[in-house]
Structures are given as structure tokens and as C-alpha cells.
Amino acid sequence: MPEPEIPEDITARSLDASARNQLKTLSKENAEAVAKHLAMAALLIDEDPARAHEHALAATRRAGRVAVVRETAAITAYAVGDFALALRELRTYRRISGRDDQIALMVDSERGVGRPDRALEVGRAVDRTVLPTDVRVHLAIAMSGARLDLGEAERALQELDIPELDPDRAFAWSPDLFNARATVLEELGRHDEAASWRARAEVAADVIAGANGDDQWETVEIDEVVEESVEGESASTSVIADHDIADTAVDDAGERG
């Protein structure tokens, strides 16, 4: 099968260094080709997931026993809606790496193939206390979605009652968490509360994006959130950057008071 084309400006160094390190078991020539395909997958995943998946599959054909290759194949399969393939790749990735850092994607993929009960089983089988915070949060979101699939809205809300659900501070995963809570509240008919969480998600996402262009921001404090009333009135919005980036204050996000 012919491999997808790679632009000349894409090199092995276009791939993240930690991912390149996993390719050291391959021959130099093969490692370079695999790195380029993985770099292309990362580059295209948002704008053209189908093409990203083609590159991931090309990498898999070359280096199917490398964890990051199977992980990339799983992520791109999920992105194109091939949840059965995503599950197979995720299981292989987990077996090779011994890691549970893609557990939320496994839960969501089980949902994607129409098995919300199985999704809950998969999520409950891991020890959440040893998971990184962002993984634990996204697992809670996935578990909440599985509860919604089963028509268990109240229990879906309970899945999101985690310490990381802080309405006044935003981390990388906070917009997703806030939006997930809003979705459940809407399902419960609690529309005013849902609108408040939607607004917080938007504020958090906007300030995070504006505070740091290189994705190295850490946290943001949210003082107030725009909340639309039924009459169309709204409150003011204020956000404060909570952490320096590379020891430099983020001036355009506001200074910590």
C-alpha cells in the first residue's frame, strides 16, 4: 500500500523528542520515516483527521510494536469515528506500554461502539488515585457520558463531583469539565446552572488561550463569569492570571491581586 506523502519541510525532528526516543529500537532509516508520519498525524489531527489517520496507519505498518505508534493510531481512529479500531489500538498500546493514560479514550470508545455498561466497567477497573490529574479528570468526564448514555443523569452529575471541579480556577482540562457539567445539568432541566457553567467554560478557554501562545500556561483564576439572565441582563467578567509563565508575569491576562 502506498504511503501518504510527506512535505519536504517535515523531518524527524518535527516530532516531539519524547516520542522520538521510543523509536530508537528501529533502524535509523525506518525511525526517520515513522517519526515523519507521526509528526504529520499530530499536525493534521484537528484539521484533517482522515489524513492524520492515514499517516498513523503508515507508521503502524512500519513499527507496530512501538507504543507511541499504536497510541497515535488509536487517537486518529477515534477522531475519524472508527471506535472499534480505536479500542483495538488502545488495548495494544496499553499492553505494550503498561500505562493507563489513555483510559478515558478507552471508555469513550466503548461508548462509541454502543457499550456504555462496558465503558463503566473499564473505567472502574483502574486505580484513579495513581492517575495523573488530567487523566483522572477526563476519565470522570467519560464516565459521566456513559451514565448519560444509560439515562442516569443524576449519577452522571455525581461522576463529575470531583475535587478538580473548582468554578473559580481553570486548568488545561477545566473547559472540558465545565462543559461536561453543563451538559448534564441541561439533561436534568437545570438550565440556569448549565448556562453558568457554559459561561465559565468559555471564559476559562478564552483566557487560557490569550494568556499563553505556547501552551505552557498553568492556571487561571476566574473572579466572575458572564451569566445571561432570562431578561438578557449580564454580569461583568473578570479574570486574573494565577501563575507566571517561564518566570514572567502574563501581563495581558491581568496581574495577580
Rank of each mutant, 00 (worst) to 15 (best):
A241I: 14
D214L: 08
G98Y: 01
M106N: 00
P167T: 01
G254P: 05
T219M: 07
T92N: 07
R99T: 14
V184M: 02
G213M: 07
A172G: 09
H138P: 07
E71H: 04
G98V: 00
E71Y: 07
L43N: 15
R62D: 09
A195R: 08
A246C: 14
R61Q: 14
E187K: 14
A211H: 08
P2N: 09
D46L: 15
L165D: 01
R61K: 14
G257L: 08
T183N: 12
S18R: 11
A31M: 05
L26T: 05
L177D: 00
R136C: 05
R256M: 14
E202Y: 03
H55P: 15
G123T: 01
E233T: 14
W217Q: 11
A12C: 02
D176T: 01
V137C: 03
N212H: 08
P163E: 00
D176R: 04
H55L: 14
E5V: 11
R94I: 04
M40F: 08
V107K: 02
P4Y: 03
P4M: 06
A249H: 13
L188S: 03
D252C: 10
L87Y: 00
A74H: 06
V34P: 12
A241D: 11
V34A: 10
R169L: 06
A156F: 08
V135S: 05
V239T: 12
E255M: 15
V250A: 10
T248G: 10
A39E: 04
I75V: 13
G114P: 00
A67R: 06
A42N: 14
L105E: 06
R62G: 12
D166E: 05
R99M: 10
